[in-house]
Amino acid sequence: MSEHVVQSPLPGVFYTRPAPDKEPFVEVGSVVSADTTVGLVEVMKQFAEVKAGASGTVTRIHAENESIIGPGDGILTIEKG
């Protein structure tokens, strides 16, 4: 099996959940498909969905909720398969 690191498409604030009172999009152990939303990046009050980009199981989450990330920064790792 191989790993896929989901990277931020742009700089901004990363959110692991759709709203403060909602559950996270994914957690370690979540099974995702390529089009699963795994988080949001906010830039100037605009929100961009971050998609998994691969099918598999989330094995590690690199970015914390409300952390500042740059383009290409690792958000989470998926074990493909």
Rank of each mutant, 00 (worst) to 15 (best):
Val41Ala: 00
Pro71Ile: 11
Glu27Lys: 04
Phe47Gly: 02
Gly70Asn: 14
Thr16Met: 13
Ile69Ser: 00
Ser67Met: 07
His62Arg: 09
Ser67Trp: 04
Met1Ala: 12
Pro71Lys: 15
Val13Ile: 14
Ala54Phe: 06
Ile75Cys: 06
Ile68Asp: 11
Glu23Arg: 12
Lys45Asp: 13
Pro24Gly: 06
Asp73Glu: 13
Lys80Trp: 00
Val41Thr: 08
Ala48Thr: 15
Pro24Glu: 04
Ser67Val: 12
Glu64Gly: 15
His4Arg: 13
Gly12Leu: 09
Val31Pro: 02
Val41Asn: 08
Ala63Tyr: 05
Asp73Ile: 03
Ala52Leu: 02
Thr36Tyr: 04
Ser67Thr: 09
Gly53Gln: 01
Val43Pro: 00
Val28Ile: 15
Val6Lys: 04
Met44Ile: 14
Arg17Trp: 06
His62Ala: 12
Pro24Ser: 00
Gly56Cys: 05
Glu23Met: 07
Ile68Gln: 12
Lys22Leu: 11
Glu79Pro: 04
Ile75His: 03
Lys80Leu: 12
Gly29Pro: 00
Gln46Val: 15
Ser30Pro: 10
Ile69Val: 15
Val5Gly: 00
Val58Leu: 04
Asp73Val: 07
Glu64Phe: 02
Ile68Tyr: 10
Tyr15Glu: 08
Ser2Tyr: 13
Gly39Met: 10
Thr77Phe: 00
Pro18Gly: 04
Pro11Thr: 09
Glu3Val: 12
Gly53Val: 01
Gly81Val: 14
Gly29Leu: 04
His62Leu: 08
Lys80Arg: 15
Gly29His: 04
Thr37Gln: 01
Val43Gln: 05
Asp21Lys: 12
Ala54Trp: 06
Lys51Met: 02
Ile69Gln: 00
Gly81Phe: 11
Asp35Phe: 03
Val5Leu: 08
Glu27Thr: 06
His4Asp: 08
Thr59His: 00
Lys45Ser: 11
Val58Ile: 12
Ile78Glu: 01
Gln46Met: 14
